[in-house]
Design a protein around this nucleic acid. Structure first.
Length: 414
RNA sequence: CGGGGCGUGGUGUAACGGCUAACAUUUCCGCUUUGGGAGCGGACGACUCUGGGUUCGAAUCCCAGCGCCCCGACCA
């Protein structure tokens, strides 16, 4: 993409209200724009990151048998009354039309997915079933905060699994643990992200969160020094030992909850009377699990972890582009144009800063701020030294490489 | 929802209750410049969040509302 076609601009000073690093950097670099408190527009650069995250999640979830659908944001009030959550869920947005008819804006989708599945599942032969979507959720946060980490409207991957018995649910629950591990690994935050025991499970007494350690976190977790899993506040108040290895040797950390997996068991299937016929023709309750990841929150978490005083440093797997190609001298426009074409032909995603009239300093500052993993500078100076300048955003040193060798240096991940 | 802070050009800031609301940056025009937000000259851009009040006079003081941020509570 030509940088001149980006309609966004970088800004030197972050809006003074934005204290959160993720919001400050993403706004300055032109990835997002705040529409109102807790509600953000994803601009061209930000959307590309979001799509990359989406791709990783979709890929891993599909491997685990997930079947993608798209459910509506507007949902019937009656369904929410059936589960009792029309009254009990405080952060549910309720909307009404001019005739006074009320609906809910989906804060989560059990109220839609269970009646949906009921229409198609009637036999043990129809189970198990794993459906998911990547879609916007609405939650009436009384206090939206921390940039895109806690919004009122946010994109979420929510998967719902349906099973004939506890054993099958348990089995899939373990599969999803691994899926989540893979996703966070691929998104570049594998080392910082800990499987965390939380309360709320049905048969195993626990649910699980995936918590990423960073000072920007709003949760406190206790990481076991012996086995590396963590427990949250709720659990440490109930017990003093690690649920996995039994030791009681924790270090306290601030963390962001990037994912959550939960056994719902029959909580919602009972409300909608979702049953199946077993081999003997008996009606049996369907068991459920649900599994969520907030995409924007994941993006914000990545920024919180990967930045320096000059800007963002994207992991290659989610970066908006692979290469930032920067032309400094008009005399080399055709040369850099050829490099641009050949990289694109090779499947490398390139942001090409071909703008003239911008100072070198400004171009470099923009590049550092945006955080694209590889920077290639085409200039008269680099040509005198024998090629183009190649530099990783994550490293300080640059090197001169021949333009024929560029592809060897730009290793494509994913 | 309780507590605190802040609302002035797109952005960041300034202005004693008193002149045409100032400066930087952005944007536009011209020239110059080309390896870390470069220089010179010119131009555009603000009913000072909204509504009341006090005053001869309000960006400035008072009240209310709205918005945004922070702490807390809440977060299947």
């Amino acid at each position: 993409m030509l940088q001149s076609k980006l309609f966004t601009k970088t800004v030197k000073d972050a809006p003074k209200d934005e204290v959160a690093k993720n919001a400050s950097l993403l706004i300055r670099a032109g990835f997002i724009d705040k529409t109102m408190a807790g509600v953000y527009t994803y601009l061209p650069l930000g959307l590309r990151v979001l799509k990359n995250i989406e791709k990783i999640i979709r890929d891993e979830v599909n491997k685990a048998g997930g079947v993608e659908i798209l459910m509506p944001s507007m949902q019937p009030k009656e369904n929410w009354e059936k589960t009792g959550r029309w009254e009990t869920m405080d952060d549910l947005y309720k909307i009404s039309d001019s005739s006074g008819r009320e609906s809910a804006l989906g804060a989560t989708h059990e109220e839609v997915v269970v009646p949906l599945v009921k229409k198609f599942v009637s036999s043990y032969k129809d189970l198990p079933l794993y459906v998911y979507q990547i879609q916007n959720k609405f939650r009436m946060e009384l206090r939206a905060k921390s940039g895109i980490l806690r919004g009122r409207e946010f994109m979420m991957k929510d998967l719902y699994s349906f099973h004939k018995d506890e054993e099958d649910l348990k089995k899939y629950y373990e599969v999803m643990k691994q899926v989540y591990k893979n996703i966070f690994e691929r998104a570049g935050i594998g080392n910082e992200t800990h499987l965390t025991f939380a309360s709320g499970g049905s048969f195993s007494k626990y649910s699980h969160e995936f918590q990423t350690i960073t000072p920007a976190g709003e949760d406190t977790i206790y990481v076991c020094n012996d086995c590396g899993v963590a427990i949250n506040d709720e659990i440490i108040n109930e017990q003093k030992e690690c649920p996995k290895c039994g030791k009681a040797n924790f270090k306290t950390e601030k963390a962001i909850e990037v994912g959550n997996i939960f056994e719902l068991k029959t909580k919602f299937t009972e409300a909608f009377d979702l049953k199946y016929k077993d081999e003997g023709g008996m009606d049996m309750p369907v068991l459920m699990g649900c599994y969520g990841i907030g995409l924007g929150r994941l993006m914000g978490t990545i920024v919180e972890i990967y930045n320096d005083d000059r800007g963002i440093i994207w992991p290659e797997s989610v970066a908006p582009f692979d290469v930032h190609l920067i032309l400094l001298n008009e005399s080399l426009r055709s040369t850099s144009g050829e490099i641009y074409e050949s990289l694109q032909k090779a499947g490398v995603e390139v942001l090409y800063d071909e703008r003239m009239g911008k100072s070198v300093g400004e171009k470099f500052a923009d590049s550092d701020l945006m955080g694209i993993p590889y920077r290639i500078v085409v200039s008269e100076k680099s040509m005198e030294k024998g090629g183009v300048e190649f530099k990783k955003r994550s490293e300080e040193e640059s090197s001169i490489i021949k333009k024929e060798d560029i592809l060897n240096y730009v290793k494509k991940v994913q």
